[in-house]
Design a protein around this nucleic acid. Structure first.
Length: 464
RNA sequence: GGCGCCAUAGCCAAGUGGCUAAGGCAGGGGCCUGCAAAGCCCUGAUCCCCGGUUCGAAUCCGGGUGGCGCCUCCA
């Protein structure tokens, strides 16, 4: 497996810290709103990483957190009058539901920041003891970046001070110092008891703590891979790394991976720009699997400019896989095709080269169709095809649905019945060589958004 | 202002020094079909511009131009 390490800024051979085990931590969402396509893409990217590593035989422990305490959540509380847990529970469930629709596997561990406070206290205390942190008069505790010689060596993105717009806080020693603990600000704030007084944690400390609590090794590196959106590299990941190595000595992660953004009209999708596209809204128009296929079809590090036109083109590509699946429908026995599996896995092993992988899939579909045309009754051939489709589902997370249901999504039972009746009527007309009537019926179906195909196995239909 | 990324056919998108520049969508031609649809076959780019390195560059270096991101919450 080769991955692009955003710390070294190059592709490197992946070697786990311990044997065949891989520990991955990915920054999850701050749960104050529904998931947008950017969250979806990040999730799908690391889902592909996880599936690939598993297929390669690694034992993978995958952790994705929920940031459930944050300024934005508090703002939402004050705006809606709801409690913290009402808001976070709602958006966590909404997130999980969306990700399930996208065929993203649930993480092995899904820690919440509010349930990891003890681990945060430990880091903060160590940083205070070692002189890396200091307390302001108002009770806030800050990390002193000037004490950490390695600060900035992770992302290489630390800016010079000129031209930077930063929030000034009274008493901060360096402009880049960041909050580890925010003292309680009274009414309207959410506060927890701590050894440092009532307050709440800073954002960066949460991830360091959850890693330490759940999956950290004690050695040179705490985990194998740390992932997240490209926007998190600096300052979030830089700060996580700083806290962790100053508190515990080792580095946080052996490899760092960052996914690119989803853009709209070439601009980053974000709340502040007001151009967010929610997953739940997209799901009203397209099946989750189609959305997943589209979002994953651009390499995870490249920006993806969302366009409905491209999404439709992408769907047509996926349709072909399902049409092939229809041709081997009903089979249960499988015949493993190691050559195909290796080819697909090899593509994904190259820093998740999805374009190469999808080209392998396309080639497979083409060959399979061609061979089925030549030998429609070849059982072994069909079993291999079925087996390959299952492998595609396992590795890429698409192709696992029922082939008929895939094409009939969103059509209610009553309509299905009507379609069936029209098809039968047409078949009779065809038998009587009444092609004018047959064509008329086909036209009627077309107006309903239904396209039919006459095949040796009868007339099939698809929703366009 | 600092740091960084990107620029390949109508569109999406691989390829990071060397055989004829993957694959998909759209388009054109054909086979199949009562006609369609589906499927299969054939068909398209010399890689933003200029200069350099090299026997040889889309791929490396320098300079442009054009997009974008991070530096403030953000996947």
């Amino acid at each position: 497996m080769v991955i692009f390490d955003s710390h070294k800024k190059e592709k490197v051979e992946f070697k786990p810290i311990k044997d065949n085990e891989v520990r991955i931590y990915v920054c999850g969402p701050t749960v104050y709103d529904d998931a947008h396509l950017g969250h979806a893409r990040s999730s799908i990217s690391f889902d592909l990483l996880r599936r690939t590593l598993k297929a390669l035989g690694y034992k993978v422990t995958f952790v994705k957190n929920f940031t459930d305490i944050d300024d934005k959540i508090i703002n939402k509380m004050n705006a809606t009058g709801k409690t913290l847990s009402e808001i976070t529970t709602h958006y966590i469930n909404s997130y999980l539901k969306d990700m399930q629709a996208l065929n993203v596997k649930r993480a092995d561990i899904e820690p919440k920041a509010t349930e990891s406070l003890e681990a945060m206290f430990d880091i903060i205390q160590k940083l205070l003891d070692k002189g890396y942190a200091y307390k302001l008069e108002n009770g806030d505790i800050y990390f002193d970046v000037s004490k950490d010689e390695e600060y900035c060596s992770l992302s290489h993105k630390c800016p010079e001070d000129e031209g930077v717009h930063r929030v000034e806080i009274e008493g901060k020693k360096n402009p880049q110092d960041f909050a580890l603990w925010k003292a309680c600000k009274g009414e309207g704030d959410v506060c927890f008891d701590s050894p440092f007084g009532r307050g709440r944690p800073g954002w960066h400390i949460e991830c360091s703590a959850m890693i330490k609590k759940h999956i950290a090794y004690d050695g040179e590196y705490e985990i194998d891979i740390h992932g997240g959106g490209a926007d998190l590299f600096f300052p979030h990941h830089e700060n996580e790394e700083a806290q962790s190595h100053c508190a515990y000595g080792g580095h946080l992660a052996k490899y760092w991976m960052h996914n690119g953004f989803v853009t709209i009209n070439g601009e980053k999708m974000s709340k502040s720009l007001g151009n967010s596209f929610f997953v739940k809204d997209a799901l009203k128009h397209y099946p989750g699997e189609v959305l997943r296929f589209y979002l994953m079809s651009t390499h995870y590090r490249a920006p993806l400019n969302f366009s409905e036109e491209d999404l439709i083109a992408s769907k047509k590509r996926l349709d072909k896989l399902y049409r092939l699946k229809k041709r081997v429908y009903g089979l249960t026995k499988k015949q493993q095709d190691k050559e195909f599996e290796n080819k697909l896995l090899e593509a994904m092993s190259d820093d998740l080269n999805i374009s190469k992988a999808l080209a392998v899939v396309d080639e497979f579909i083409k060959d399979a169709n061609e061979n089925l045309d030549k030998n429609p009754k070849d059982k072994v051939l069909k079993q291999k095809i079925l087996s390959n489709i299952e492998f595609i589902d396992k590795l890429l997370g698409v192709g696992g649905s029922d082939a008929y249901e895939y094409f009939q999504a969103g059509v209610d039972e009553e309509t299905k019945k009507k379609i069936q009746e029209l098809i039968e009527k047409r078949n009779e007309a065809k038998k009587e060589k009444n092609f004018a009537l047959a064509d008329e019926i086909r036209e009627e179906l077309k107006k309903m958004g239904i396209q039919i195909q006459d095949t040796p196995n009868g007339t099939l239909w698809e929703k366009v």
